[in-house]
């Protein structure tokens, strides 16, 4: 692909929400997520010559967004759960068009996802945010399908366990 500036801008606008959301769910910090997402698109601009189609671009963006977010966590040795409180407050200000309850429940789900170990989190984010199949996730994360399926199962078990206590607490607060 050899798009001009206008076409590249179109690609950025088309995929910015996806790339930013993957980074945000992996990192739990809007500032860091924007930095990583910008880097992903700058890298895309350099790599476009090697990408053959729109589908290839989508696959590449998901893979690079997941890998760069993981790299960021490894480099900074970040544990997103420590930032969950701050992130919740920021996030609530940015989400429009949803009722307070929906935002609160959604935010708690996101906090729970952020508290998962990184390997499980990336599989869960790609499965439920991007609605990808285990096969697609395996290709994206360059992992065996069995590993992805096991990570998804373990992630779900942990999330269900957390949801049991967190959502009870939420109902009491309301």
């Amino acid at each position: 692909m050899r798009p001009n500036d206008g076409e590249f801008r179109g690609l950025v606008e088309q995929h910015q929400s996806m790339v930013f959301s993957i980074a945000l769910r992996m990192l739990g910090d809007r500032g860091a997520a924007e930095e990583v997402a910008q880097d992903v698109f700058v890298e895309l601009h350099r790599s476009l010559g090697r990408l053959e189609s729109e589908e290839h671009v989508l696959f590449w963006l998901r893979r690079v967004a997941a890998h760069r977010s993981t790299d960021y966590l490894r480099r900074r040795n970040l544990r997103p759960e420590f930032m969950a409180e701050e992130w919740t407050e920021q996030h609530c200000r940015h989400v429009d068009g949803r009722s307070f309850d929906a935002i609160a429940v959604g935010t708690r789900l996101e906090e729970m996802v952020l508290s998962l170990p990184q390997g499980l989190r990336s599989a869960i984010v790609l499965r439920y945010q991007e609605e990808m199949t285990p096969d697609e996730i395996a290709k994206t994360l360059e992992q065996p399908v069995a590993t992805v399926k096991s990570n998804l199962q373990r992630g779900l078990v942990l999330l269900r366990r957390k949801a049991g206590s967190v959502l009870k607490e939420f109902t009491r607060e309301r």
Partner: peptide, 23 residues
């Protein structure tokens, strides 16, 4: 519930402009 709770969120205002500036 997970699918609904983990929907995509919009990128920050002016994101595309900042990317294009860097490019």
């Amino acid at each position: 519930e997970l699918k609904e709770g983990l929907g995509r969120v919009p990128a920050p205002e002016g994101f595309a402009d900042r990317v294009m500036g860097r490019v």
